[in-house]
Design a protein around this nucleic acid. Sequence first.
DNA 1: ATCCAATATGCCTCACCGGTTATATAGCGG
DNA 2: CCGCTATATAACCGGTGAGGCATATTGGAT
Lengths: 114, 114
Amino acid sequence: MSDAPLWTALADPHRRAIVALLLERPRSVGEIVEACGLSQPGTSKHLKVLREAGLVRVRQDAQRRLYALDPGPIAELDAWLAPYRKLWNTSLDALGDRLDETAPDTPEEPAPKD
Amino acid sequence: MSDAPLWTALADPHRRAIVALLLERPRSVGEIVEACGLSQPGTSKHLKVLREAGLVRVRQDAQRRLYALDPGPIAELDAWLAPYRKLWNTSLDALGDRLDETAPDTPEEPAPKD
DNA sequence: ATCCAATATGCCTCACCGGTTATATAGCGG
DNA sequence: CCGCTATATAACCGGTGAGGCATATTGGAT
């Protein structure tokens, strides 16, 4: 049954970093290793967790493995968020912080901070 | 420093259950204890984590402590989600799963499943 | 002042997680 | 077939987090 691997997977900062990396484009393990400064086995382990959470998919290219983001589970997160959204729509609407909704022109890749 | 307490706080199923409870209405510790079947000290501990993550606020009423949800951090989560949202807008839009956006009439409290 | 009800804290234990090093496995080029 | 590269798995370890019980604290009632 394994609880809810989604949250557990995203609870780790390194894993979130990997997810952010894969948001730009699919990457090989080597790239990820270099990008997030972890050891190769450690990175593989994190990738396994992300894989088992369904957050990433692998495509084998020669002896490389290309990891790519799978939007499904993140959509689940969004669905989880939905009931709470009205909270800050009703109580903080005066703040006018509606910065989401795929902003009109997206100047740069906002590079998720965390 | 403390990394990102938000994710850590929400990584625990019991804590998510508490958050879901507080979405309905503010509750006393006793109610929460009874609702999620944990021991009272355990519950208090979880509440402390949620408090330190900024997810809940306390209001003292007699010797009770009324815990209420603070929407701020959840909005942060939503902000984090934002860059990913276009993923399933562009790749899965045909699926037509736009069930969010504070659905027109919200028949019942959807009671977040997890 | 005392007792009770409600909540928080302190210890302790146990399991799990993240990290490392060493080793196995798979695919390619010679 | 052999060696090389890329990735995964195994074995191990230190830290941390969740859970329980007992105890301290706080506020109200009598």
